[in-house]
Design a protein around this nucleic acid. Sequence first.
DNA 1: GTCTATAGTCGGATAGAC
DNA 2: GTCTATCCGACTATAGAC
Lengths: 214, 214
Amino acid sequence: MGYPKGRETRQRILDVALQAFGDAPFAAVTTRQLAEIADASLPTLRYYFGGKEGLYRACAEAIVERFRAHMAPTAARAAEALREDPSPEAARMQLKAVMGTLAGFLIGSTESERWSHFVAREMRDPGPAFDILFEHLWQPGVATAARLIAHILGCGENDVPARITALLLVSSLLAFQSGRSVSMRIMHWTSIGEHELAMVVAGLDAQMDAIGRR
Amino acid sequence: MGYPKGRETRQRILDVALQAFGDAPFAAVTTRQLAEIADASLPTLRYYFGGKEGLYRACAEAIVERFRAHMAPTAARAAEALREDPSPEAARMQLKAVMGTLAGFLIGSTESERWSHFVAREMRDPGPAFDILFEHLWQPGVATAARLIAHILGCGENDVPARITALLLVSSLLAFQSGRSVSMRIMHWTSIGEHELAMVVAGLDAQMDAIGRR
DNA sequence: GTCTATAGTCGGATAGAC
DNA sequence: GTCTATCCGACTATAGAC
């Protein structure tokens, strides 16, 4: 009951908010802009999300949802593969697959580029959405990578080297994409698309090849 | 003439601003807070910096200044060493020295931690200070690293692999420090001091050891 | 469910005295 | 050089009609 129009309005506001909060920090976004662009009114926004913070948190939840949907198959396959063949080289292959999938998520679409900004920003200046993102995105994401790296290094998945390496790997990818203004100017690129990302992934692949060898 | 009091007030405002803009994004900081904490008035702030944006830019310039002072000796030594011995292994050693010095700058003090936040934020959401930071900080910083990496790889210093590798190296370090909220929770650390940074640098050293080998 | 209208707050900028 | 006092715009939130 009440789905047709209500759900649609709510979704429209959420879409606009995801875009706005992806492009600019919390304090720089106004609910007025959002309401206007979403073709709704201020009170309507409040009705659905309780206020500015509630809307912000709803954005984080939406991002987490997409992240999970995108990563789940690859993560499951990696866990499966590891059970069948726990060798370092198998783990290395799965790690590359996981990072590749992550790269696809970060660069997949104009939308997902904005999400990476959102995530990076909340990581730097923790706000109302920090806990949501940490628990459902960073924690599981880094844990997956750390588990694979631990297999390569032959150490426990909670050991410092495994976790640091995992965090550095994920961070570099995110930093490259979310710091695109700098990346593009340094690289003399006019955009970061599949072609450019492939070069970055190649750089990361080299790093993954080097893990545990020395 | 007019140094004693004027300069001092100006400096006090600048110090407070460096701290505030280090902790929070541009839009989240108010000139009122700044004036109050600096024990000055709104018009005084305007008198010295022209306004909020001017003050923000002044912060960027102050950071650039410290960065240059901190990095200059090491960068000069690296260039010198490279001229005397252009071998890959000499370059690798210098690269480690440069990255170590950079790490020292990023973690050196509570102040410098704030500066890294400032830089990371402006890299993500380009604002009034982007050009200043890019030209005097990113450009020269990455160029120095890229030059050394090019020597290791035996390629030109403007080649894509050299620049990507340099950018990834610098970015990971910055991401780790500036995304400290996440880093600390992932690593179960309660702070990021010299001890913790040493572990991160060890991880980066491993990456630098791996450059060009495979 | 969604609106118009308004209340209450706080922001940056400014005029003008000292 | 630095202040007090004030302006005006823009923001979030709310009340209450439809």
